[in-house]
C-alpha cells in the first residue's frame, strides 16, 4: 500500500504538550519535513528556547540544546563556530527572541552568523499564561495589559523581519503564516530556503511565522485564525524582507 502521509522522521514519537489549536505543532512538522527532505537530521543541532517551545528538545529527532531565556542565538553561535559543517537552528518565540534575547538576535544577525532562526510570533507570552509580548498589538488585551496595550506607556510592537532586514549580515528574512493550507505550503518553502541558505554558507537566515495562541487569546482555534488574519497580518505583512541568497559569495 502506498504511504501518502506519515510523521516526518525528524520528529520523535512523543506526543507534544501544545494546546489544541496551537500552531507550534504545524511549525515543528514543517521544520522536521525540511530536515528529512534535505537529509540533514544527522548533522543538525537544534536550540530550544524558554517559552512554550521549551520542550522542543523532546520533539525534534536531531541533537538538541535547551537555552537560557533569549540566549538561543548565542548558543547556536557557539555550536556553529565549533562545528561549522553542521546545521544549527534555533526555535524561538516572541518574548524569547524579541524581548529578553533582542541583543543576541540582533548581533547574531549582524555578524552574519551562519545559522537559521525559526521565529514563532503569536503576540503573547504563552508559557507563563498570556502576558504582553514585544509583538503584542496596540490595544491587544493580555494579562498584563488588561485595558489593552497602550502604546503611550507600553510602547509599540517590534517588527522583527523589518528590523533585521536592515542588517548587512542577514542573508534571508521572510515572514510567513500557517493559518491556511496555502500559507502552510509557503511557510515550508521559506523554512527550507532558510536551511539551504545556511548550507550554502550565505549567513543568517530567519523565518518569522505569524502564529495563533487560542488559549491565551481566549478564542477557539478557528476564531484564533480569524483574529490572526484580521489583526496580525495587517500589522505584520507576510513576504520576503531580505534575500541575498542569489548574490555571489563575497
Amino acid at each position: 500500500m502506498a504511504i501518502v502521509f506519515q510523521k516526518p522522521k525528524a520528529l520523535t514519537d512523543v506526543p507534544t504538550h501544545y494546546c489544541p489549536g496551537c500552531t507550534h505543532g504545524i511549525i515543528h512538522r514543517l521544520v522536521a519535513e525540511c530536515l528529512d527532505e534535505l537529509g540533514i537530521e544527522g548533522k543538525t543541532v537544534g536550540v530550544a528556547p524558554v517559552g512554550c517551545a521549551v520542550m522542543a528538545y523532546n520533539y525534534f529527532g536531531c541533537d538538541m540544546i535547551q537555552a537560557p531565556h533569549g540566549r538561543a542565538p548565542a548558543i547556536a553561535t557557539g555550536v556553529k563556530r565549533s562545528l561549522p559543517d553542521n546545521v544549527v537552528f534555533t526555535y524561538q518565540g516572541d518574548g524569547d527572541l524579541a524581548a529578553i534575547g533582542t541583543a543576541e538576535t540582533v548581533h547574531s544577525a549582524t555578524r552574519g552568523e551562519n545559522i537559521t532562526v525559526i521565529f514563532v510570533n503569536n503576540a503573547i507570552y504563552g508559557m507563563t499564561g498570556g502576558q504582553m509580548a514585544p509583538t503584542s498589538l496596540p490595544n491587544q488585551v493580555t494579562q498584563t495589559t488588561p485595558y489593552g496595550r497602550d502604546v503611550k506607556t507600553a510602547g509599540y510592537p517590534v517588527r522583527v523581519c523589518e528590523m533585521l532586514s536592515t542588517l548587512d549580515g542577514t542573508a534571508y528574512a521572510e515572514r510567513v503564516s500557517v493559518d491556511c493550507v496555502k500559507n502552510v505550503m509557503k511557510a515550508k518553502k521559506a523554512i527550507k530556503k532558510a536551511f539551504e541558505t545556511q548550507i550554502a554558507g550565505k549567513g543568517f537566515s530567519i523565518v518569522e511565522v505569524v502564529s495563533a495562541c487560542p488559549t491565551n487569546w481566549g478564542l477557539s482555534p478557528v476564531e484564533a485564525l480569524d483574529w490572526l488574519r484580521a489583526n496580525m497580518l495587517p500589522y505584520y505583512p507576510l513576504g520576503v524582507y531580505k534575500d541575498k541568497t542569489e548574490e555571489e559569495a563575497e
Binding site: 543541532v45 537560557p68 540566549r71 548565542a74 547556536a76 557557539g78 565549533s82
Partner: peptide, 12 residues
C-alpha cells in the same frame, strides 16, 4: 552572550 556561546561550544 559570551558565556552562552561557551555553553553552545561546550555542548558541541
Amino acid at each position: 552572550a559570551a558565556v552562552n556561546m561557551v555553553l553552545g561550544a561546550a555542548s558541541a
